[in-house]
Nucleic acid binder design. Structure first.
Lengths: 154, 154
DNA sequence: GATTTTTTTGACTTTATTTGACCTTTTGTT
DNA sequence: AACAAAAGGTCAAATAAAGTCAAAAAAATC
């Protein structure tokens, strides 16, 4: 089946990629007509796929001259940096683990990444002092931020 | 009697063999109709025969445009275990990095995972002796194997 | 032949998408 | 100010898949 929703999603993603500033502005009805679907279908896609969780901000205006503005934001960077900041000097293994868990549950780490980090911390703890451990974990988290979105490459 | 389950299994295996990329995507209801069986029978076969232990990954979506995707992951575990084995007692940082790189280029690690491992080895090298480092990296690689396929959680 | 395991089915559940009717906000007109 | 037109928003119903589960049937094992 065609799955218009996916098509709309990729249409928007496509536009986003072309824009240097990670922002695309569109008229809902116009796009709906162009893609031959119900206007509310556009809303559906925006609500289910372009969520804050996934790093997007959508804002709109109604009425004459209305629009929908979709912006991709580096939310992961913000959350990661916040997590890194929370790993203070006196933090140790339990803190590390719960930080990792939190990032995982926010969908910012895959299972595998979380498992790796967790195992790291565990192994480190028997070799390096806590302050150094924290420094390392922070470093690892920032490593991930610089890699952009988690991504699955088959 | 002709055990439909077996027939379904070989139908899928057959399709898999034809696909160069070891992946086949199908619609459950469609296949059920084609093979004249209950749709849940397809699920049964997938659950009993196309398991991770047997080297398959099955993922699916419900709803309009739904599908079932079956992927054979032949070498993964073997390659990982091989890589782990190649990290011998006298291996050190350069070996670690090239092992990681190799796994990455084989598509068995994501960019982020590779970056994590690489960074970790790098950091560890100033704290722990090479033999211990190797032990740790092996441990980490096996951690990944047990997590099955890398996966993107939307 | 009795018992245990595997298969088969179908009724019911959950998830996802699509549509359309109606609602609210904004702007333009008189 | 009142009203009309132009957007976009909301929500619930209809539809389209796939998943679950347990009971019946068949096969395998002892």
């Amino acid at each position: 089946m065609d799955k218009i929703a996916d098509f709309i999603e990729s249409w928007i993603l496509n536009r986003l990629q072309k824009e240097a500033d990670n922002v695309v502005v569109l008229r809902r009805n116009e796009l709906a007509e162009e893609l031959a679907c119900a206007p509310s279908q556009i809303s559906y896609v925006l609500n289910t796929r372009f969520t804050v969780e996934r790093g997007y901000i959508v804002e709109s205006r109604r009425g004459s001259g209305g629009y929908v503005r979709i912006a991709r934001i580096p939310i992961q960077a913000i959350v990661f940096e916040d997590a890194a900041r929370q790993i203070t000097k006196d933090a140790s293994l339990p803190t590390f683990q719960s930080t990792i868990l939190r990032l995982r549950s926010h969908g910012l780490l895959t299972d595998r990444e979380a498992a790796l980090l967790s195992q790291f911390c565990d192994m480190m703890s028997s070799w390096v002092g806590p302050e150094e451990q924290g420094k390392m974990l922070r470093r690892l988290l920032l490593t991930l931020v610089n890699r952009g979105e988690k991504h699955d490459m088959r």
